[in-house]
Design a protein around this nucleic acid. Structure first.
Lengths: 246, 246
DNA sequence: GAACGGTGTTGATGTAGATCAAGCCTGGTG
DNA sequence: CACCAGGCTTGATCTACATCAACACCGTTC
């Protein structure tokens, strides 16, 4: 269908969103590459996809198509248990790389869904492996990204295994705040893209508990919440919630 | 101290435990390599270390020395929270690769401790990256291992976030059983290398709860437990515990 | 602008697992 | 061989969170 359009126009458009001119290049796969290297990476990224809010990107069981870098928007990934139970495994924003779970088996092990309109860059994995053999910086960056994902997961395990409801929510808010900051947004005022139910699923809590924890923080003057709009009034206070329990 | 010994002897010894003659080669980093490639990998593995039970291998905060492949024995890794809380992040046995957490930042993010006398092969990471640029099979195997670690962590997150105490313990026992089987041991009778406290830490439970769940399984004829000796009498029954809760 | 469905808040009650406590194995040590 | 410390089990009680329930809010659609 896209082939009906004038090819020239598409080329120009693709050029405009090349890695080298992408504002996320320092967060994403191209971090640490020089301009020549980045150009070679660009050539791998032939597909970009726009996802409407609510649309899935890939599903558990599907063969690995490629990795996906988020250009803009917000996504969640969910792991599924045999019996239908599902849990949010992570929330992903611009610069994050999705699909790493599928490298091991060649098959995706979780579902990913856009929580707002989202644009992703598709990077064919075989080509990426090949190119990263030629570009040590790219190879290393890929390793760094996978390693950081492992460390992040360990943090979530710690949270789920040994923190109270309020501690979990405080950690969650501080983490979001930090990630927004890295991307140039306000650390203290942001809009949650996910529901209470999804936050609860991620934190191992029920939605009512999440709601009560929000209210509790608000009563103590740590934050204000109005539906999905959150403002952090007292970041040190939130951090203190984390250490309070000894 | 080792240099006082006759170098010849050490060389012969090192040869004996080369990757190519290691019984774990299909589980470990050399999986998928041909004999010439394996020989090149062998040359990276200059250090082997024996750890007495209770000894640490590396600690959070230390710079990445290298990756470590377990040749024999049993280890745990623990993530630490700022406030001193600690949680077991995983149990590791022969063929497992340790240290992946440190690639991202260059610094280890967890502690690892031998739970019984253990022998590990040290693989300098920089050399491994270099060699994996020349050997696509090695590169791919490294990626597979990291990806599988991510998938494993997602499984633990699901367990911690949405399973009851008995479900967690059942999943844990079945996982252990499966890993022992892969390594050629009995799937149904094995000796736990960790304490109830460590199992509890890993599963997000207190040791008393772990103990009660063991007793419960025993009363229902699913297993027998006597201290650290476990025998699985009814594997399908244990699997049923996982699905019971809907 | 009325009606509706998805989302969020708040209260009342129930419960799985934590906590506290006591006693029992077991393996290592003098 | 007796002793001891660390590990394990089991019981009684407590509590944080789940569950159930009612209602309020908001954005969408007709």
């Amino acid at each position: 269908m896209g082939s009906a359009r004038a090819p020239r126009l598409i080329d120009v458009n693709e050029l405009r969103v090349a890695c080298s001119s992408c504002s996320l290049r320092e967060l994403c796969l191209p971090a640490g590459l020089d301009s020549g290297e980045m150009e070679r990476l660009d050539r791998l990224v032939t597909h970009r996809r726009k996802l409407r809010r609510g649309t899935g990107l890939y599903h558990a069981g599907e063969p690995l198509a490629g990795l996906f870098a988020i250009r803009s928007g917000f996504m969640k990934s969910c792991v599924l248990h045999d019996d239908g139970r599902e849990q949010v495994a992570g929330f992903h924003m611009a610069g994050d790389l999705l699909g790493l779970d599928a490298i091991g088996s060649g098959t995706h092990t979780c579902d990913t869904v856009a929580l707002e309109d989202t644009e992703v860059c598709e990077i064919p994995f075989a080509s990426l492996e090949q190119l990263s053999r030629e570009l040590p910086s790219l190879q290393h960056q890929l390793h760094r990204i996978m390693s950081r994902e492992i460390v992040r997961d360990h943090g979530v395990m710690l949270l789920l295994g040994s923190m109270s409801a309020e501690e979990r929510l405080a950690a969650f808010l501080l983490n979001l705040s930090q990630r927004f900051t890295t991307r140039g947004y306000s650390p203290s005022a942001f809009r949650l893209r996910m529901t209470r139910q999804e936050i609860g699923s991620y934190l191992g809590l029920k939605l009512e508990t999440v709601s009560r924890a929000f209210s509790g923080f608000q009563e103590r003057g740590l934050i204000t919440v109005r539906q999905k709009e959150v403002r952090i009034l007292d970041a040190p206070g939130l951090k203190a919630v984390l250490d309070s329990k000894r």
